[in-house]
Computed example of a mutant assay.
Amino acid sequence: MTQEVRAAGAVLWRGCGKATEVALVHRPRYDDWSLPKGKLDPGETTAEAAVREVKEETGFDAVLGRYLARTAYPVPTRNGSGTVPKTVDYFSAEAVSGVFAANDEVDELRWLDPTAAEKLLTRPEDVRVLRAFCEVPAGLTTLVLVRHAKAGKRDEWTGDDDLRPLSDAGLRQASALRRVLALYGPDRVLSAPRLRCVQTVQRVADDLGIEVRHEPLLSEEGYWPDPVLGVARLLAIAGDGGTPVVCSQGGVIPDLVSALADRDGVDLPAARGGVVPSKKGSFWVLSFRAPTTEDGPVLLAADYHPSALPTPSPTRS
């Protein structure tokens, strides 16, 4: 039985005046120019691996944005008897600090505009990833919309349902979310006023030294009397800028994401049979164009991550 080789990487970018530059690395072992990437460590998610590999190969700390693409190609086995499939998941990642120093894997880094970078890249699959990055502007507002983690069964809970806590499995999901959501650089945390929702993102807020702010319009009871108000509230949160994390419920998220996608003409390939997924402990990365004086925030991309635990890659929308 062949074992798939899993890897992750990023289009690392920075603003340069009004322009955008991306980082390419030269690997002397292969004598090629590529996007920074590398194999997943045991127990690592693709998002964690992408940030770690960017740091190791380029020296830069990065904040993740939208998911870009997956590439797949065969690589030789260790014993040279054949090949095994290799997949690489790529994210957009903004460089926030750091400096390059030559290392065992990379001896040169170049910051280039995307057109020049495309000409320098060695592999066609990297060109495809770069083009996916260029489909929308780089400097977007990221809003991470989280479905609360697993709680005890409703029919086995005798108290107020608002106070139903996370189960042991849910606490494990919340711990994984704490690690992965930090990679997106959150600056505030909001939640439907349900204990299970607040518990799901409480440790994210703790790490930031802030309180979880309650959002009644994003609970099932608050959303459905007037969904338009709920959509408007999420847009107002996105319009405030920064990188908010918002935790809501399974009865809200599918309709909310569908409404935003319909409003702004974003396809949702993650939705199968017209059903927008929202598993417990999953999250959507919603990428908005910053509001202007004429318009509010506009959704440009929506990526579904079915789990913060090590899982298959997210579905790009």
Rank of each mutant, 00 (worst) to 15 (best):
Q202Y: 11
Y223G: 06
Y30K: 14
G170N: 05
D126I: 07
F133Y: 06
V22S: 01
R70M: 05
L40T: 06
W33T: 09
A290K: 12
V275H: 06
D206R: 14
S97I: 08
P76D: 13
Q202W: 10
D168M: 11
P277H: 09
A308K: 11
L35F: 13
H305G: 00
D161W: 03
G152N: 02
P216L: 08
H148K: 06
G9P: 10
R52V: 09
G296A: 09
D161A: 04
T77E: 12
P310K: 10
P225G: 02
R14E: 04
T20W: 08
V51E: 05
V189D: 04
A19I: 03
V201K: 08
P74Y: 01
A301C: 13
V228R: 03
E4S: 11
D155K: 06
A69T: 05
S282R: 15
G15T: 11
S175Y: 02
Q3F: 05
T87F: 03
D255L: 00
R29F: 04
R66M: 01
A259Q: 13
L163Q: 14
S317A: 11
A116R: 14
W111K: 00
L256N: 07
R203N: 03
K153Q: 07
L35G: 04
A95S: 10
A117P: 03
L140V: 10
A8D: 01
K153W: 08
S191Y: 07
P186R: 07
A236Y: 07
R52A: 05
W13A: 00
P310I: 11
A8Q: 08
W224P: 04
D168T: 05
V96G: 00
E105V: 11
G250W: 05
T45Y: 02
I253P: 10
P227G: 02
A101G: 07
